[in-house]
Amino acid sequence: MILFGTIVNALLIVIGTILGRFLHNIPERMKETIMYGIGLAVAVIGIQMTFESTQILIVIISIVVGAVLGEWMDLDDKVTKLGQWLEIKLPRKEEGMNISEGFVTATLIFVVGSMAIIGAIDSGLRNDHNVLVMKGIIDGFTSIILSSSLGIGVAFAAIPVFLYQGIITVLSTQISQYIPQALLDFFISEMTATGGLMILAIGLNLIGLTKIRVANLVPGILVVGVIVTVIHFL
């Protein structure tokens, strides 16, 4: 089932929110250690994916060019400003945040990022749900923390997560109908490796070793498509 990863991700957000409403006093040290553990696991997944490449030079060029494009468009800053704009437009209660704010805050955290895109493409093209399941674990734990302060609105973020990742997954399955199998296999291997580096960056950010603007690396996926297409037809 191609939507398995997306469904698991959405369910873990809901489960995490419910748990968060009952677990108000999670020790900070426990939160920190668990997040480090998740970060290490994400980093390992990213490293494993990087070894899928058959031509590492394509991965390097795609990451570099993608980073240039991402920084030029300043995607990370645009995402931040979108969140700020939404928070300004939404009504705020004097004491704490309301359901709308919990929903928007959680949605921005769960939807934005390369892991959602790469994982959804992986589910659609390879029927491989590992990335989305790992993302679901991260989102689930994050939901526990968010819902303890923002309330039940966090659970509703599961809806846009399901729609966003589900649409990308379904669209990815249609690619094989219009692209030669050899080109598709070539793209999958290099896209997986390039996405793996981005996921490694997410893991390092979770651990606290780096502050990489991963959103600015996402255009690298498009660069991979261009490069492998040119190489294939040449």
Rank of each mutant, 00 (worst) to 15 (best):
S189G: 01
T105W: 06
P219G: 13
I38Q: 04
L90E: 07
I138K: 09
E71P: 01
S100T: 13
V228Q: 11
A106W: 14
I221N: 09
Q165L: 09
I175V: 10
P180W: 15
S114E: 06
A120V: 10
L200S: 11
S172V: 07
R126G: 00
G196H: 09
M191K: 04
H24K: 15
N127D: 13
M97N: 13
M49G: 01
A215L: 09
I167D: 05
L184V: 01
T107F: 01
M30T: 14
L183A: 07
N98A: 02
S147W: 14
F141T: 05
L206K: 10
I26S: 02
E101T: 07
Y36K: 00
N205D: 08
I121E: 02
S172L: 12
D74R: 14
S189V: 04
L12D: 00
L197H: 10
M30V: 11
M134K: 07
Q177W: 15
L23F: 03
N25C: 07
N127Y: 01
V68Q: 03
L12G: 00
A201I: 01
L217V: 04
V218H: 03
E87P: 00
V111W: 00
G20W: 03
D185T: 05
F141Y: 13
M1W: 06
I145K: 08
V218S: 12
L75T: 13
D185A: 02
L217P: 00
G124M: 13
L19A: 14
F51C: 07
G225K: 09
S176W: 05
G196K: 06
M97Y: 15
A41F: 13
R29L: 10
V170S: 12
G39K: 11
G66V: 09
P27S: 08
I118V: 14
P91C: 06
L3H: 00
E101Y: 12
A106Y: 12
L82N: 04
D74N: 15
A10K: 05
D122P: 03
F187S: 12
V104Q: 01
N25K: 11
G124Q: 09
V170Y: 15
I138M: 15
S148R: 10
K89F: 08
T194Y: 04
L184S: 12
M35V: 03
V154L: 04
P219E: 14
I145S: 07
Q181V: 06
D76T: 11
L150E: 03
M1F: 14
L69K: 06
H24P: 00
M191F: 15
I179L: 02
I47V: 13
F186Y: 14
P160C: 15
Q55F: 07
I159M: 11
D77I: 02
T169Q: 13
I26Y: 02
I167P: 11
I2N: 09
Y164R: 03
F110A: 08
L206F: 13
P27G: 02
V214Y: 10
T169M: 08
I167N: 09
E71R: 13
D76N: 15
I221S: 07
A43E: 02
K81Q: 13
L150I: 01
I159R: 09
T17R: 08
V224T: 10
I7N: 03
L163H: 08
I38S: 00
I18V: 14
G113M: 13
M49L: 12
A155V: 03
V44D: 06
R21C: 03
A10R: 10
V111C: 10
I18Y: 15
L132A: 08
S100Q: 14
G153N: 06
I58T: 09
